[in-house]
Design a binder for these strands. Structure first.
Length: 460
RNA sequence: GGCGCGGUGGCAGAGUGGUUAUGCAGCGGACUGCAACUCCGUGUACGCCGGUUCGAUUCCGACCCGCGCCUCCA
């Protein structure tokens, strides 16, 4: 039995898919006007692990993650760059796919782009206008009437009166209520636009997700996820649109990832602590970044710092050390470790608890090898790789992980030659020379691991 | 001001009404030519004050502190 924390009910609930054995899940993806940052990575990895685990538990998961490829920021950035907006979005979508591949994130089942669903969007707006939940304003925009939906605020636990009184919402003459939000934006002269019953324009952000999820997954589906800052207003608005258009429940379980902070401060462009994934990959291997993200619970707030990443690197290294030189056995039956791993993951995807099991397996492997029990060691290695795959970790060949070229001046051949020279020196008991070679390698970031079978190396 | 989340050992980070989280770092030992890796052992915890209880870090209440959202944002 899997239990999942539902933002809507604010508690963990036993997960019951609408259709037995099948999970229909929608996650809000990026607006593609720039490279993915750490916050995107967190959501990408969190829902990747969730998908992997649900599949491991036997569910057929239909995972839809959209791409917002038309919006104010995209148009603004394209204009700054002097390029077509579609060239910008095509470039950023390609970059996003590269980034997520390096993070070990599996592709979603479907990845709809807003501009491919204009017809569905227009149809949904039309439905809302006809039923009195939306109205065309004098300025050519179409707005959703928040007051037409009594349950507005049920996800974010906000009261409409408070929102209106807050007065931080966009004050727009054309709106009937300050909390109303735009469904269709009238095009300014020269702007890219699509035809509609209310004139040429483009969709508002919130309606895209309602229309695409409706089309790809149906009117009611199991899980809807996204970043923490999407809870309000984006997801609240999606609920209002979808439930008014369809007349019944939109989503059963709402899931939100925790926020990323940087050196204990909010990540923001004005603070200058905004990291893209590719910047971080210049300093740390992608799998280390993934390990860092997975090592704490998906709903908790995590703090990015050099120290935390360095520690993640050391810890992941320990895990790969356990696998080094072993050929995982085939067809290893389920063990107590598998059971404990599942127990942690069943409890709202407790990856931190699950990783503790990985360490227990690694410890067992190391004990077996130390005692010369090779068969048991390779059996447990199979368990470690198997459990690792559910978290999207430990799938590389250990040597590839250890020896990935980070732009060092030494090639693998250089290093092998120096290790041979050191081995010769040790054989003739010239320890001064042997240590000199070891120190030289260490200075250049290469760490040696001696064992009975010989010397192996890794880049530190 | 409104809504919500959290305060665990040097650090990161799970969890539990009474019993070892785990990792990193530290210390002692084994292994080693010396180290590293690995193994064994080891110390330091549950913001504060009340309450419930045989017993609370774990439940309840107050307080203090931190954080997020309330505007585009993953």
């Amino acid at each position: 039995m899997i239990r999942i924390y539902n933002t809507l009910s604010q508690q963990k609930e036993e997960f019951q898919p609408i259709e037995p054995g099948k999970v229909r899940m929608y996650v809000c993806g990026m607006t593609v006007y720039d490279y993915c940052h750490l916050g995107h990575a967190r959501v990408l990895v969190a829902f990747d692990v969730i998908t992997r685990y649900l599949r491991h538990r036997g569910y057929d998961v239909h995972y839809v993650r959209n791409i917002t490829d038309i919006d104010d920021k995209i148009l603004q950035r394209a204009e700054e760059n002097g390029e077509k907006f579609s060239d910008l979005t095509a470039r950023m979508i390609k970059a996003m796919h590269e980034d997520e591949a390096r993070l070990g994130v599996l592709s979603p089942t479907e990845e709809p782009c807003a501009t491919d669903y204009i017809n569905e969007i227009v149809a949904m707006i039309h439905k809302l206008v006809s039923s009195g939940h939306a109205y065309a304003a004098d300025n050519g925009d179409v707005y959703f009437s928040v007051e037409s939906y009594p349950e507005y605020g049920k996800l974010s636990k906000k009261k409409l009166e408070d929102l209106v009184a807050g007065a931080r919402v966009d004050v727009q003459e054309a709106k009937r209520s300050p909390a109303d939000f735009v469904l269709w934006k009238a095009a300014k002269p020269g702007e890219v636009s699509w035809p509609s019953p209310w004139g040429d324009g483009r969709p508002g952000w919130h309606i895209e997700c309602s229309a695409m999820s409706n089309r790809c997954l149906g009117e009611t589906f199991d899980i809807h996820g996204g970043g923490p800052d999407l809870l309000f207003p984006h997801h609240e608005n999606e609920i209002a649109q979808s439930e008014c258009a369809n007349g019944h429940t939109f989503v059963n379980t709402w899931m939100h990832a925790g926020a990323i902070r940087v050196n204990k401060e909010k990540m923001s462009k004005s603070l200058g602590n905004f990291f893209t994934i590719r910047e971080i990959f210049e300093k740390y291997p992608p799998e280390v970044v993934r390990y860092f993200l997975v090592s704490s619970h998906y709903r908790s707030q995590v703090d990015y710092s050099e120290d935390n990443l360095a520690e993640a690197g050391r810890t992941l290294t320990r895990l790969y050390h356990a696998l080094r030189g072993l050929v995982p056995a085939k067809d290893v039956p389920e063990t107590e470790h598998d059971r404990r791993f599942a127990e942690a993951m069943d409890d709202d995807f407790n990856t931190a608890g699950a990783i503790a099991v990985l360490h227990a397996v690694a410890n067992e492997i190391n004990q077996h090898r130390r005692e010369g029990r090779d068969e048991q060691a390779s059996e447990q290695a199979a368990v470690l790789v198997r459990l690792g795959s559910i978290l999207g970790l430990l799938q590389q060949d250990p040597e590839s992980f250890f020896q990935a070229d980070t732009g060092s001046e030494l090639s693998a051949d250089d290093i092998e030659a120096m290790i041979q020279a050191r081995a010769d020196a040790r054989k003739r008991k010239d320890f001064a020379e042997a240590d000199r070679i070891r120190d030289e390698l260490a200075e250049k970031g290469v760490i040696l691991d001696d064992s009975r079978e010989g010397t192996s190396w890794r880049r530190g």
